[in-house]
Write a protein that binds this DNA or RNA. Structure first.
Lengths: 188, 188
DNA sequence: TCTGTTTTGCAACGTCTAATGCAAAATAAG
DNA sequence: CTTATTTTGCATTAGACGTTGCAAAACAGA
């Protein structure tokens, strides 16, 4: 018995996520966000709280979506799944594809390090999630030094995402991904 | 026959560089810079121009200092020199060491992508400088696929620096560096 | 139609920042 | 000492941002 909302909450949250992803936290002002989603500043505050809360929700959305993707790729777990991840991250994409912006979490590491414990916790949780997937896959195939190599793969993925971010193209990480795929094959 | 400067220009520039390195561009306000160097805002403007010009000079200083270090390490060039780079970047450091902040250039990629062509040019030039060193060393030792592998090494180094930045400790990149050193040995 | 509740748009506030104008201060040459 | 020149400190300006108060708008039920 009240005025209904004029927008879909999940949809706007996804829009905010991709905008943070492309532009970063500071450059994503409410004015920009209003232009992207069509939702006014006042309504966003009502719905999501202040800007940092909205950002945390965007991080959670990102984490969940990547984890869901990983669930598919790592079924079954194994080095082939790992290679799929690296090939997929550097596959050519159409212009304007969000994948050309790298990874929201990696971007955030550099922009908002030490800003708040909530953000830091999410960054480390995300890194841990990746490490766990790689570790499980390596162990599943009986690869030795699985823990150190899982750590290596996380770092390698982050390096690729850095190259992508600098070049603005997902293919910029392809040479490195190629060596990674080859190196992994040598472990079997 | 005029009032002399009360500070050393090169010294203040180095101070600005390390501050940008630790805190990033935006967080390094003139107030912070005044606290770090003891030089007033007005004098900085007189000496270095506006903030972005100061930042460009800081990037140049960084590039030059890293290049000088590389000159030493890559004499003679070879895979041993490459391994020295990776081991050095992840060697334990005392608390507060600037190396725990990763790499100024990598940090800048994430914070100031697409802000100005001057910045972009310096980022790409730095990446190119690294690639050239690695490529030369690989070729010197007769390693095959030197171009692709040099690209890989640049990306790997950036990944390590990302891990360092997230953890705030240089040793956080050690596991990955270990695998890299081992992998390089397999190329010979 | 009337009423109660939530959303929405507008405007304003307070804060922070880079940048600048201006006058006092500091120096070295004459 | 005087003077010309540069540096320095202070205060101010202009602009951007997140946030909030307030009143009008939009709806669902009685």
């Amino acid at each position: 018995m009240a005025r209904p909302r004029s927008f879909d909450e999940a949809e706007v949250l996804t829009c905010a996520m991709t905008t943070f992803w492309r532009l970063g936290f500071d450059a994503t002002t409410y004015k920009v966000l209003e232009g992207e989603s069509g939702v006014g500043v006042r309504s966003m505050h009502n719905t999501f709280g202040e800007k940092e809360e909205l950002f945390l929700k965007a991080l959670d959305t990102y984490h969940a979506s990547v984890a869901a993707l990983m669930d598919q790729v790592f079924d079954p777990p194994g080095i082939a799944a790992i290679q799929t991840i690296f090939r997929g991250a550097t596959a050519p994409r159409p212009d304007g594809d969000i994948a050309h912006s790298g990874c929201l979490m990696v971007n955030t590491v550099f922009e908002l390090q030490d800003r708040s414990v909530e953000i830091d916790a999410r960054l480390k949780a995300y890194e841990q999630m990746l490490r766990d997937r790689f570790f499980g896959a390596l162990q599943h195939d009986g690869i030795s030094d699985a823990d150190q190599r899982a750590e290596f793969l996380v770092g390698a993925l982050w390096g690729i995402l850095s190259q992508i971010r600098l070049a603005g193209r997902a293919e910029a990480g392809a040479p490195m991904a190629g060596v990674i795929v080859e190196t992994i094959s040598g472990w079997a």
